[in-house]
Structure formats: C-alpha cells, structure tokens
C-alpha cells in the first residue's frame, strides 16, 4: 500500500472513531469497545475494497457486508455516514426514539445496512445465504461477515461454517474480530473458542491471520482472499477492543457503556490529536 493511501485510510478511520464516540455519547448507551476494534477494518472495506455505490445502496451487484456482531452498529453506522450513505449528523440521534439509527442494524430503514442483526451468531448464516444465491445467479459480488470472538461461541456459527465449507462458498469472507474480550470477561475465562484459525481450517476454510490495525496487513490479506477459489476464507484479525481511545483500550467495562461528558471530551481530544498528526504529516 502506498504511503498516501495508508494516510488517507488512517485519516478516515480516525473520523469513523470520532463518529462512534459521537453516537454512543449522544445515545447514552451502546457498544464503543467492539466498534472501535473494527474501525480500521470497516474503513478499509468501505473505502478501499468493497464494490459499492452509496447512492444506490440496493444495487444488486454490490458487495455485501453483514455485521454479525450487530451490537457494533455504531462502527457500521459511522463508516456508512463517512462513505455518504446518510448525513453524519444522524449519528447524534443513534438509539433515540423515532430515529433512523436503531440500537442494532436495521436493513429495512437504514441505507447501506445489508442485513438486520443483533442476536449473535445469526448474521454469518445470512451471509452464507447471500453468497450461495450470488453463485446461483452467476453474480460475482462478494460477501463479508464480521464476527466477534465471543460471538463464535454460538453453535450456529459453526453450523454456518460447515455449510460454507461444504458448498465451497469462495465468495464469502468471514472476519473474526479477535479482541480477546466479551462481556463477562476475557474469552479465555468465559468459554474460549481458541484456537480460532484451526477451527475454521477444520471446517474447510482458507485461513489468514493478521494485525487488524495494520492497513498493510489488512490489504494483503483481503487481496489474497480474492485469489482463493473453491473454499470460503476466514480472516482472523488480532485487535484491541476500544482501540484509539486510551482509557477504553483492552477494558471489558467499555463493552457496552457510554462515556460521560468528561470522558467524551477526552476521547474526542485524543482522536482529534491523532487526526491532526496524520493530517500534519501528509
């Protein structure tokens, strides 16, 4: 990846993170931790990888993204706003009564949301269905599903994995956000799904592992994923929950909590400083 492209993605990712903080702060609830950990991934997919037309969100040949870990809606909404699916100021009414932006992704009302989700473990199945249907109609769109490392404790995830492997859905990429935390503690304490790469490999996936905060590594993996044929791809990315906001990083308590005014201001200040540094060095 060129330096210029990387800087641009880093700049956008900062704005996506700011949108996440903006959303959960005004909602007084929501899930910042797991949204921040996928901010770089979402930025890459929506700005550098996916074949999409924000002005035509239901375009039938578009690539699809299913946020299987639907509680990270603030991350998805923020990147969709950055990409122009709807105005950024919608983020401030996240979770408000009568607002478009529901607590969990709602495909009926939100442009750019390809599948409703929120009950963990279900999105990956829908992604398999989209991939299968694409094959049946000889379309070349690709389907990306983002899962949590806690979420994959759901048996349904492995039923879907078995299906994807068995049907050879090479137009499907399942991404596991391996931030190591869920609600009741670390995934290791609660009910560890490790070793995650081995499990997906055993279900017939080509598996790639990477640092989910390195755009170089992200690009390399997604480019490679495109070349794999005959089997679905699992990308297991190591991330930091709460990434980008110092006091949220690696803290289980920031899974589903909103910052107060002081914390909000600190988070915004940190992200703005990061943004200024990126823009200064351009």
């Amino acid at each position: 990846m060129t330096d210029a492209k990387k800087k641009e993605l880093q700049r956008i990712a900062c704005k996506v993170r700011l949108g996440i903080i903006e959303g959960v702060y005004h909602a007084k609830s929501g899930h910042p931790g797991g949204s921040l950990s996928i901010a770089d991934l979402l930025t890459y997919l929506y700005f550098a990888k996916m074949r999409i037309e924000p002005q035509n969100p239901k375009w039938e040949d578009r690539d699809r993204l299913v946020l299987s870990k639907g509680h990270c809606a603030p991350g998805l909404y923020s990147v969709l706003a950055q990409r122009g699916y709807f105005p950024e100021k919608e983020l401030q009414s996240l979770r408000h009564i009568g607002a478009m932006l529901q607590g969990h992704p709602d495909m009926k009302h939100i442009p750019g949301v390809d599948m409703s989700s929120g009950s963990l473990g279900q999105g990956i199945s829908a992604a398999c269905g989209m991939a299968l249907s694409g094959k049946l109609s000889h379309k070349d769109y690709r389907v990306y599903a983002i899962l949590g490392d806690g979420e994959i404790e759901e048996g349904q995830v492995w039923e879907a994995a078995m299906f994807a492997g068995n049907k050879g859905l090479d137009n499907l990429v399942a991404i596991v956000d391996s931030n190591g935390l869920q609600i009741d503690g670390t995934v290791a304490e609660v009910n560890s799904p490790e070793p995650i790469p081995d499990k997906f490999a055993a279900f017939g996936f080509a598996v790639l592992t990477l640092d989910g905060h390195s755009f170089d590594e992200i690009e390399r993996a997604f480019d490679e994923a495109e070349k794999i044929s005959g089997k679905p791809v699992a990308i297991v990315m190591k991330t930091v929950k709460g990434k980008g906001v110092s006091f949220m990083e690696n803290q289980v308590s920031w899974h589903g909590a909103a910052p107060n005014k002081e914390q909000y201001e600190q988070a915004v200040a940190e992200l703005n400083a990061a943004l200024a540094e990126i823009e200064g060095g351009r």
């Binding site: 909602a27 007084k28 609830s29 929501g30 639907g70 979770r95 529901q102 607590g103 969990h104 709602d106 409703s116 989700s117 929120g118 009950s119």
Partner: peptide
C-alpha cells in the same frame, strides 16, 4: 429493554 431496540 429500551435503547437496544427490536432485536432485544
């Protein structure tokens, strides 16, 4: 349940 919305 409130803010989590319809899925919950």
């Amino acid at each position: 349940v409130g803010e989590d919305g319809a899925t919950h």
